[in-house]
Design a binder for these strands. Structure first.
Length: 430
RNA sequence: GUGAUUGUAGCUCAGUUGGUUAGAGCGCCAGGUUGUGGCCCUGGAGGCCGGGGGUUCGAGUCCCCUCAUUCACCCCA
């Protein structure tokens, strides 16, 4: 145990895992761009008020989970971003993006910070990728965002994910529903737990989210938000569902799904993975037209978005064995020299192979052949290239396929050609 | 923030009513094979038993404190 260790709720990502991150990020970049989304990178900290206004002061995130600090006595309070959407919207409003063009499709990958007690699938520093589609109020916008998210999952090979969806209606719908809920729950005030009692006043919708077993029966009997939606909201929701069905995206309507953040309206959705344990939400999102107004824009800005938790995605993929091929990737060739005098020549060859675009590894510690071979095996090199005295004097090299143990002796040009062949094939395939 | 859980080798874990130099498997290194990996055999390195205090002739083992881990609640990605 070393003296210093990573801060609670943070972790190191070592090379093998980093390769997995890169792979996922690559898929995200490719698909986002395929759908016409462009990357945005916003600061990891913002003025604290941004999150207080944007996310909502009644939420747990703002209430008790933010890493907030004061840079100096005069400075304004700052907070490490606990979610992405507020920052993206701030950036859009600040630079008047929507005056330059009516529609903006943005995506991001970045780190977030929440001061929660760590547990499976939950850390204090974590990462999300997501997309925000600004300026379009049509149900096609939410559908587009959901479709992109689901295609990322599909491309990564995930299966068994569950998409749940609901409509939260517009502001007036929710106001009426809120009253109905309060009227329903108030007689049962004594049965409610502390948290729910508080929510009864501040945000009764979130009582529906409670996992408290003692309340499940009561919650099941509560009035449905869906029944309080006006005509327009219903039509909007139906249209979203229509798009999903048309695209063969399986969903399940969950009338009790409400999202934690205050800014959602109309469509809200969540994707869960059964591989995750208690924290089973792998992604979620919805429509948040009111956020811009909250942030001081004169009016609402129609907006739809989703966010996916990278760590939870990684866990799910690992459990489903989706990294097997990636993990098996090693260098193309490992150079093995017979004796120390040939080490420099080996290094020369390594340089030449690398310049030719061949992933090449070589022992820098002048170890025995056996040690070199073990290393080649350990790092899963495809081939070993032997340089011995006999070959050296003849200008030849022995190339051994480490999977089949076949070995041939040939000049360097032929070696390069042979090693390059499978790499080219791979490129054609991808 | 609340509850529970676990801290012994790089990893996964044994360690008997407290009793000598603390063990295994895997991994690592080396040898068997001085020009060849994976399998097998042999050997080796590597532990202030999370930290501090206490009880005791004696503590990995018992008690207290502390730090950390993990899981769950809460909530969320």
């Amino acid at each position: 145990m070393s003296q210093y260790q990573a801060v609670k709720g943070t972790r190191d990502i070592f090379p093998e895992e980093a390769a997995r991150w890169k792979y996922i990020e690559g898929v995200v970049h490719t698909l986002a761009s395929l759908y016409g989304f462009s990357e945005i990178r916003t600061p990891v900290f913002e003025y604290t008020e941004l999150f207080q206004r944007g996310i909502g002061s009644t939420t747990d995130i703002v209430g008790k989970e933010m890493f907030t600090f004061q840079p100096d006595v005069k400075g304004r309070s700052l907070t490490l971003r606990p979610e992405m959407t507020a920052g993206v919207m701030r950036a859009a409003l600040q630079s008047n993006l929507l005056s330059s063009a009516p529609v903006h499709k943005l995506y991001y990958i970045g780190e977030l910070f929440r001061k929660e007690r760590p547990q499976a699938g939950r850390q204090r520093q974590f990462s999300q990728f997501g997309a925000e589609l600004l300026g379009v109020s049509s149900p096609a916008a939410v559908a587009e965002v959901i479709t992109l998210m689901m295609q990322v999952f599909e491309s990564l090979g995930l299966h068994g994910l569950k998409l749940r969806i609901n409509s939260l209606g517009d502001t007036e719908d929710r106001l009426r529903y809120r009253e109905a809920l309060q009227a329903y729950f108030t007689p049962f005030h004594d049965i409610l737990d502390e948290a729910s009692k508080e929510r009864l006043e501040k945000n009764p919708l979130r009582i529906l989210d409670s996992k408290n077993p003692a309340l499940q029966e009561l919650i099941a009997g509560a009035p449905r938000l869906y029944d309080y939606l006006n005509e327009v909201s219903v039509q909007d929701f139906e249209k979203v569902l229509f798009y999903l069905a048309e695209r063969n995206i399986a969903y399940e309507i969950d009338y009790r799904l409400v999202r934690g953040l205050d800014y959602y309206c109309n469509t809200a959705f969540e994707v869960t993975s059964s591989e995750l344990g208690a924290q089973d939400a792998i992604g979620g999102g919805g429509r948040y037209d009111g956020l811009a107004r909250e942030l001081g824009s004169g009016s609402d800005v129609p907006a739809s978005g989703f966010a996916v938790g990278m760590e939870r995605l990684l866990i799910t993929m690992e459990k489903q064995g989706l990294f097997a091929a990636l993990d098996a990737q090693g260098p193309d060739v490992y150079i093995v020299v017979q004796q120390v005098d040939l080490a420099d020549h080996g290094l020369q060859i390594a340089c030449r192979l690398r310049k030719a675009g061949i992933k090449t590894e070589i022992d820098l510690a002048a170890r025995s052949m056996k040690a070199q071979m073990r290393e080649a095996n350990r790092i899963k090199a495809s081939y070993a290239l032997f340089i011995g005295m006999a070959e050296y004097s003849a200008g030849l090299y022995s190339l051994k396929n480490l999977a089949t143990s076949e070995q041939t002796t040939l000049p360097l040009d032929a070696v390069v050609q042979l090693l390059l062949a499978p790499a080219e094939k791979e490129q054609l395939n991808s």
